[in-house]
Design a binder for these strands. Structure first.
Length: 511
RNA sequence: GGCCCUCUAGCUCAACUGGCAGAGCAGUUGACUCUUAAUCAAUUGGUUCGGAGUUCGAGUCUCCGGAGGGUCACCA
């Protein structure tokens, strides 16, 4: 029972709730009214002030009580609503003894209140609502974590802010209610998704939805979550990418498609990984990875400009400029410069391993050539790409869905975009030769034969789709959460996901 | 999964080499007709994450377990 979990402090509030009910006041009324938000009210008053003959502005405001300062026959309060705070001014002269008593007897910080009256400016100069009537909209039985703002030399100083990360993530509703900067993150997130959609829509892409429950997962190398359909007695996987379905749409003649949605990967959780995360993928017929590169710079810069009003962002202590053009680096060249190894001269895992050993670079035994190169990228290149950088031309054996560079079968037309030392996006010229694609699946199966977990399963229907003819195309995927991290300057992906994954918590019977 | 750190009142935090578990805010009661961390006076509130051990005595030391954070591994 909820009541059994109440602290002494909360029991007091429960008593007030009962008292309200006994007094015939509904603590959770069905209807509410709001003529102005706090900001709208203040704006309207300021505008009227400049007109000498303006009549008083009547306002009904609604919001959560964030501060209460009773001073005998006067009470000041601030309510918070979606765009700010408004001071309420309660005076016995306006309300009468009985209504004032109701205020002090039943109302607490955190309660939702509706108040009506006229706007005025206090002696200290704050636009406030002189309350003539008010009612309870929703009683809060638990107190919000105490936090107060103090203005020191014009700067807002916050005291006793809710900061415990576990509470903030598990009870995001509390975090949002008391930390305005957290609300701001998610407003930016929403605006970011909207901006990406607008950019793509403006370029004639259509947004589609493809299956999350898939009989065969693919499009990336990751462990899937497995589930089961009871009636069909069928094993299903939560998608790890959208790629193979979106490319089927290219076969069908939808030449420009994109999807924004959730991917699920059954892997480690970290400051930049959440088991479910938001991805944007698009596929663009008759384009190639070079065109996609230009397009990517424009899209990200467009979103930044639209959402933040600038392409400059602060991330992890760095000033980053997202404006095009982004630095473009050839993978072979970059590795050559970083560790003095020419991967072109080391076409096998064995020779590359030998080269690594000769330079005392640690690596795990038994890795494929592609995985060794990928490890080099992660260790020596990725952390250094603070300003936006496209790393181009990847080895074929770690890119089973990408098309080779003409005349260079071991290298594919693929790039990854890095910003802030973090991989942001991944794109390539799409492989559309069904026979080659089938061969790649077979090779991938063989490459990971010792390591079943990572096997890239053959998707016969996808290969079959390609055999009907898929136009040449460029494809692209970007981690939307990571983009929002950049836009909001947050180092942890958990800060930009409303309900990040945490281990479930048993209230009792632990251990 | 390995290693390191953290967990004390509703929130933010104290508590020396092991020695009566505290403060501010919020809460309660009272005063107060222009406050804004309101102020003033009084006051309530604790399974110190859970369990076991060492000890005359454990928030503090040891062990087991839990959760969170960091880091490494993993993640084409």
């Amino acid at each position: 029972m909820l009541e059994d979990t109440f602290s002494e402090l909360e029991q007091v509030r429960l008593k007030k709730l009962r008292a309200l009910e006994s007094a015939g006041i509904d603590p959770y009324p069905t209807r509410a009214g709001q003529t102005h938000t706090s900001q709208e009210a203040i704006d309207a008053f300021v505008k009227a002030e400049s007109q000498p003959d303006a009549s008083p502005i009547r306002v009904t405001a609604a919001g959560r009580i964030r501060s209460l300062r009773p001073m005998g026959k006067l009470t000041f309060a601030h309510i918070q609503d979606r765009d700010g705070k408004l001071q309420l001014f309660f005076r016995v002269n306006d309300l009468g003894e009985e209504k004032m008593a109701e205020l002090s007897a039943y109302y607490d910080l955190g309660d939702f209140i509706q108040a009506s009256g006229t706007l005025f400016r206090t002696k200290r100069g704050e636009v406030s609502l002189q309350v003539e009537d008010f009612k309870m909209l929703a009683k809060a039985l638990r107190p919000l974590p105490a936090a107060k703002d103090e203005v020191v030399d014009g700067e807002i100083v916050r005291h006793a802010v809710l900061s415990d990360p576990e509470t903030r993530y598990r009870q995001r509703y509390v975090d949002l209610a008391v930390n305005p900067d957290v609300q701001e993150i998610f407003k930016i997130r929403s605006a970011t998704v909207r901006a990406l959609q607008k950019f793509l829509d403006d370029h004639d892409f259509i947004e589609v939805e493809t299956p999350i429950l898939q009989p065969i997962y693919g499009g990336a190398a990751a462990q899937p979550f497995v589930t089961h359909h009871n009636q069909l007695h069928q094993e299903l996987y939560l998608r790890i990418s959208f790629e193979l379905y979106l490319k089927r749409l290219l076969v069908g003649g939808l030449e420009r498609v994109y999807e924004i949605g959730r991917d699920f990967r059954n892997e480690g959780v970290s400051y930049k990984h959440n088991p479910e995360f938001t991805q944007l993928e698009f596929y663009w017929a008759y384009a190639d990875y070079l065109m996609v590169m230009d397009f990517t710079e424009q899209m990200v810069a467009f979103a930044a400009e639209k959402v933040l009003g600038t392409t400059m962002v602060n991330f992890n202590g760095h000033q980053i400029n997202l404006a095009p053009p982004w630095q473009r680096v050839d993978l072979r060249q970059a590795i050559l410069e970083a560790v003095d190894i020419d991967i072109e001269l080391n076409p096998t895992a064995e020779s590359l391993q030998a080269a690594l050993e000769s330079r005392q670079i640690k690596h795990k035994p038994g890795m494929t050539r592609g995985k060794l190169i990928d490890a080099l990228i992660g260790e020596f290149l990725e952390p250094n790409y603070i300003q936006p950088t496209f790393l181009c031309n990847y080895p074929r054996d770690i890119s089973p869905l990408a098309k080779s560079i003409p005349g260079n079968p071991s290298v594919v037309e693929r790039f990854e975009g890095f910003v802030g030392g973090m991989e942001l996006c991944n794109a390539f010229t799409e492989l559309n030769n069904p026979l080659d694609q089938e061969q790649r699946f077979i090779e991938m199966g063989r490459a990971y034969a010792d390591d079943d977990e990572e096997q890239h399963p053959m998707d016969d229907d996808f290969v079959n789709a390609l055999s009907y003819g898929m136009p040449p195309a460029g494809g692209f995927g970007i981690g939307v959460d990571r983009l929002v991290m950049l836009f909001t300057g947050r180092r942890s992906i958990r800060e930009v996901i409303l309900f990040p994954h945490l281990r479930s918590q048993d209230d009792e019977d632990q251990g």
